[in-house]
Design a protein around this nucleic acid. Structure first.
Lengths: 228, 228
DNA sequence: AAGTGTGAAGCTATTCACAGCC
DNA sequence: GGCTGTGAATAGCTTCACACTT
């Protein structure tokens, strides 16, 4: 897709798709763990994630050897390994720039906090919003970005501003040391090497649906193959 | 990634990444058109989209031949062709299931309407929310899904319910003919062949950032390459 | 001269298949 | 016997390179 982040692991390249699948595996395994499941084969995990057993094993093999031949994987052990691989064993301090509707939704999104992502500062360019409270945080003026981010130890910034101002915000937060950016503005952003950027572009996803529907042959024709 | 939708065009397979790039091209070209730019080379378009000239030409070549050798592409013509390719020349009727925070943010998202996606019905399982107004729409009970969707000519459904109930909602809307689904619930969904599914998983994106930051060598080491 | 359209080459990701361990 | 870990094979996507058009 649009953003590409690839890291090296033991000399082998780990693709973005592998990392995305690891997230999926972790979510699933956490559920199974809560249900009291103790052990699991790559085949069973694959079936539940919509992929193949070989893919699961290959994904995991980049990071070590976690299974027992003939037995499968220990759910608890794999959960713990995946959390460690994904860097989830700690608290990530996050700032949100843009306190509009999307920003407000993100502030209330429980899932973030559960995974260790804590939104600890909110900024907005609109003087009318500055000073208001949002989910327990006071909205700060964007002018304070450069002073507050380093002082608060924030490492990840969520961009939820209009497309026109997104690149400028990125430049500013990168200049004070932020190396992880999650972008909700529907625009292509440039970041220097060493900064990780992920995009969430809802309009683009809808357009992909529009494309699929417009080109589907009406059901029986098998023009679409989808698996989620 | 997780969801895969591929359609055939003149016997050639068009990948999801190609469709995603077409969306990008369209967004950019629309801006240029508003700025009065009349013509453009694949090289110029590529540079602005973070890809290569060959990629742009290859992407377009699946759908026809729109450029003039030696000259490049007419911006206006390409905008019009892309809109047609993406199926954006019409009004898409969309329903939102789940009137929580994310749902509320989506209702207010101007970008959707601008591209022709109109949210025309909102559903929620919570009796306390049913009957309330959201951006001019009355929240309906989920029990009315099966009757309202076909009657309203809705073709795309946005899922913004908790993970636990997402699959059931999908089954129900698919059973009444919906063939396009945009899923915000952080869970893997199954749809039958012929139904297009796209996922927006914000927690997963944050985890990918976490992974990148956790494995970056601290800047100089060049372990990360990112381009948005 | 400039720039498209496209087969062929190169590269990356996924799947296969099987040796090896439990 | 069952299932993992992994080199080898395949499929898919991207880049190259050049014939061809304006």
């Amino acid at each position: 897709m649009v953003s590409q982040i690839a890291t090296l692991m033991n000399g082998k390249k780990v693709s973005e798709s592998t990392v995305a699948r690891l997230s999926l595996y972790l979510r699933l395994l956490s559920e199974l763990q809560a249900d009291g499941v103790l052990t699991l084969s790559s085949e069973a995990l694959a079936r539940r994630c919509g992929t193949t057993a070989a893919q699961v094993r290959k994904d995991l093999s980049f990071f070590g050897t976690f299974g027992k031949r003939g037995l499968g994987y220990s759910v608890a052990e794999l959960v713990s390994e995946l959390r460690s691989i994904l860097g989830l064993g700690r608290r990530w301090r996050v700032a949100l720039v843009g306190a509009g509707r999307i920003g407000a939704a993100l502030l209330g999104y429980e899932d973030f906090r559960q995974q260790g992502f804590y939104i600890e500062a909110v900024f907005d360019a609109d003087p009318a919003k500055v000073g208001q409270r949002r989910s327990g945080l006071v909205v700060r003026p964007e002018a304070e970005l450069e002073s507050v981010l380093p002082a608060s130890g924030i490492e990840i910034v969520i961009i939820a501003v209009p497309a026109e101002s997104a690149q400028e915000v990125v430049n500013r937060v990168v200049s004070v040391g932020v190396r992880g950016i999650l972008n909700f503005a529907p625009t292509k952003l440039d970041v220097p090497a060493g900064v990780a950027l992920k995009n969430v572009n809802m309009a683009m996803e809808l357009e992909a649906l529009s494309y699929a529907l417009a080109h589907s042959t009406g059901g029986a024709g098998k023009a679409i193959a989808a698996r989620g």
